[in-house]
C-alpha cells in the first residue's frame, strides 16, 4: 500500500502513496467507454484542505474523472486512495466510501418527489442512522447558513436554479464529507444566479473544505484554486498554481486552450 512514487506533476514533495495527509491520490487512472478512451492515465494528488480546479474543453473527461473518484464509474486501470485508504482495492464497500465523498452535479439532481428538508435528511437518516429530529435540526442549520431557511417545505421545482443548486450542495454537506467534488455546478444557471452559488463555494473553501472542482468559470478558478489542472484528451497536461497557469502557461496545448477562452471573452 505504501511505496515511493514517481513525480505527480506540480507537487514539490511527494509523500508515500496513501499517506493520510493526502485527501485524495489518483495513480494511472484509465477509463474507456467502449472504444472511446476518455481518461488515458491520470495522476493527481490533493492535500487535505486543498482546492483544485479542473479546466479543459468539453469532452476532455472532467466529469468522468469526478465520477470515477466517487466510484460511480467502474475504472479500467489505476488506483485511487481516499485519506490514505485505497478505495479501488477489491472488496471495498463503495457505499461506505461514498459517505465520505460529496458530489454535486451540473443538473442539481434533487429528488423531485421530496421537500427540500427531506432531500437533505434522507441520506443522514437512512445511511448514517441519525435520528430524524437530529438530522432535521442539522439540515435546518445548514439551510440557514446558505440562505435557504424558508425553503425547507418547498418541492425542488418551486425553487430557482440557484436555490436548487444550493440545496444540492447542502444535501451533500449533510453527510459531513471529507471532500467535495463539484461538477460544473454553475453551468446550468442563468448568469445572474451564478454568483450566489460561487459565493457558497468560496465560503466552503474558506472553511477548509477539500474540493475538486470541474469548472468553465476561469475567473472563479483563478481566485479560489490553489492549483489548476488543465485536461486534454484524458490527461492532465499542465498542473500549476493559477497565477502561473493563467499568465504563463508552459504547454502549447494549454496556451492554445487559453487563447480560445480569451478570444471568447471568458477570461
Amino acid at each position: 500500500m505504501t511505496g515511493q512514487l514517481a513525480g505527480t506533476g506540480g507537487a514539490d514533495e511527494v509523500p508515500p502513496a496513501g499517506h493520510p495527509s493526502e485527501a485524495v491520490r489518483i495513480e494511472g487512472l484509465r477509463k474507456s467507454f467502449g472504444a472511446n478512451q476518455v481518461l488515458t492515465g491520470i495522476d493527481l494528488s490533493l492535500a487535505a484542505h486543498e482546492v483544485i480546479c479542473l479546466i479543459g474543453a468539453s469532452g476532455s473527461g472532467k466529469s468522468t474523472l469526478l465520477r470515477c473518484v466517487n466510484l460511480l464509474e467502474p475504472i479500467d486501470e489505476g488506483r485511487i486512495w481516499l485519506s490514505g485508504q485505497e478505495i479501488t482495492a477489491p472488496g471495498v464497500d463503495e457505499n461506505l466510501v461514498r459517505r465520505h465523498i460529496g458530489i454535486v452535479f451540473q443538473a442539481f439532481n434533487l429528488f423531485p418527489h421530496m421537500t427540500v428538508l427531506r432531500n437533505v435528511t434522507l441520506a443522514p437518516v437512512k445511511v448514517l442512522g441519525t435520528s430524524r429530529p437530529d438530522a432535521e435540526e442539522e439540515a435546518r442549520e445548514l439551510l440557514r447558513r446558505f440562505g435557504l431557511r424558508d425553503k425547507e417545505a418547498d418541492f425542488p421545482d418551486r425553487l430557482s436554479g440557484g436555490q436548487q443548486q444550493r440545496v444540492a450542495i447542502v444535501r451533500a454537506l449533510a453527510m459531513r464529507p471529507q471532500i467535495m467534488l463539484l461538477d460544473e455546478v454553475t453551468s446550468a444557471l442563468d448568469p445572474e444566479l451564478v454568483a450566489e452559488v460561487l459565493d457558497v463555494i468560496r465560503e466552503l473553501a474558506a472553511g477548509g473544505m477539500t474540493m475538486l472542482i470541474a469548472t468553465h468559470e476561469m475567473g472563479f478558478a483563478r481566485d479560489i484554486a490553489r492549483r489548476v489542472c488543465f485536461l486534454e484528451e484524458g490527461q492532465i497536461v499542465e498542473d500549476a498554481p493559477p497565477a502561473e497557469l493563467f499568465t504563463n502557461p508552459r504547454d502549447e496545448r494549454t496556451k492554445r486552450f487559453l487563447r480560445r477562452i480569451v478570444d471568447a471573452g471568458r477570461l
Binding site: 465520477r67 461514498r98 452535479f105 441520506a123 437512512k126
Partner: peptide, 19 residues
C-alpha cells in the same frame, strides 16, 4: 441521474430503489 444522485450519497441499491 436520479440513481447517480442517490448512490453518490451512499444509499445502497435497495434503499435508492425504495426511497
Amino acid at each position: 441521474s436520479q440513481v447517480a444522485a442517490a448512490r453518490s450519497l451512499g444509499l445502497s441499491h435497495w434503499t435508492s430503489l425504495r426511497h
